[in-house]
Design a protein around this nucleic acid. Structure first.
Lengths: 193, 193
DNA sequence: ATAAAAACTGACTGAGCGCTCAGTTTATAT
DNA sequence: ATATAAACTGAGCGCTCAGTCAGTTTTTAT
């Protein structure tokens, strides 16, 4: 059993559920069974621990989407978009706490003063939006998506729309699952040739 | 000069910009010139101060939108929707820090254990989504909006889409102003009869 | 002018925090 | 078996924080 990894996993859960500032190292120590000193031995500072988590998440996101794109076969750009929306919703469920972490403000506040943090965030968002954009350009080539929409900008709009649903869910304000059909429908309408 | 109001204003700015936990009472005290004891005299606890801010925000939002709806004249449901989207973007600019506060997680975390907090949040979101929904039903009556879209659900989708733009802005990830045209366009496409 | 109430003050408290470090245990190499 | 390095420990340090309280100043009412 790798103690460093255990600390990372537990910290991910706590930072996501309670927030970074609201999670004391002592709690991570208690749950993992590792002494507080051990946590600082592996990750220098609390901020360093956070960055390690964010780096892991960035790598996971990039890897997951690359594999998905390589394995999947799409018969049209519009179908690709629908599949990617579904995959994003699926991922946000299977990596729920890390998406929650991404939706909290700490990372953005930190990125103002920490270059590494900013790089990770940009890598994550670029990866996500690139894929939405790729679906649009593909669709514009095969004729399944309107050529008048701006690929990058519309990719951002749709990404924002999908991500808002994920946020609704984590905020427990609404059951976003009930909005799935409406989401796909809106997507089609925005893009249809 | 009302010291209680001054404390409220300064705290709003600090909680928005830095976050609730990251803002010590001592800083509010220093900036306002009020002693720390004075802050606790007016607002019992730090959490109480936060709730007072949220209550004010709820009242502002409700008042602003009511006045807007009453004063404005719309020649169709679809135009009403476009106007409301614009107004929402305008409001999020003129009440920037309070929208930032709404986008931070503290309020949602607190609402899990504090009924008043939860009520304020629900009031805010219901107010916002109700107005988007009203535009849709109006449009469906006058024929400017497709009758097949589900009013409430689509209102939530569009609200999420618009709010995502505001979030892009505050996160400084992208200049959301450049997305305005694309946003209105997407809106029209989702709703067009 | 006087009394009562409301507003305000800041030194103080006790708890909790991130982090250090001198020392111990465990793993690895020869 | 021995030496070296890596992993781990937890008591303790210095500091910050939310909240208190006994006392002072200001406002309001009569």
């Amino acid at each position: 059993m790798n103690k460093k990894q255990l600390i990372l996993d537990v910290a991910t859960g706590l930072f996501s559920q309670k927030g970074f500032t609201e999670t004391p190292i002592s709690e991570i120590s208690k749950i993992t069974g590792a002494a507080e000193g051990t946590i600082f031995y592996h990750f220098k500072t609390k901020e360093g621990l956070f960055l390690a988590i964010l780096e892991d998440f960035k790598n996971s996101i990039v890897t997951e989407f690359q594999r998905y794109i390589e394995e999947q076969k799409f018969d049209s750009g519009i179908r690709m978009m629908e599949d990617i929306v579904s995959f994003y919703l699926y991922l946000s469920g299977s990596m729920e706490d890390r998406f929650l972490l991404l939706h909290r403000h700490y990372a953005y506040d930190l990125s103002a003063s920490n270059t590494r943090c900013r790089e990770y965030l940009e890598a994550i968002y670029n990866c996500l939006i690139d894929i939405f954009e790729k679906a649009i350009t593909t669709g514009q080539e095969d004729g399944s998506i309107d050529r008048n929409v701006h690929p990058r900008k519309t990719a951002m709009i749709i990404f924002g729309m999908v991500d808002a649903l994920v946020r609704f869910n984590t905020f427990n304000l609404y059951n976003a699952g009930a909005l799935y059909d409406e989401l796909i429908n809106s997507c089609r309408r925005i893009l249809k040739a």
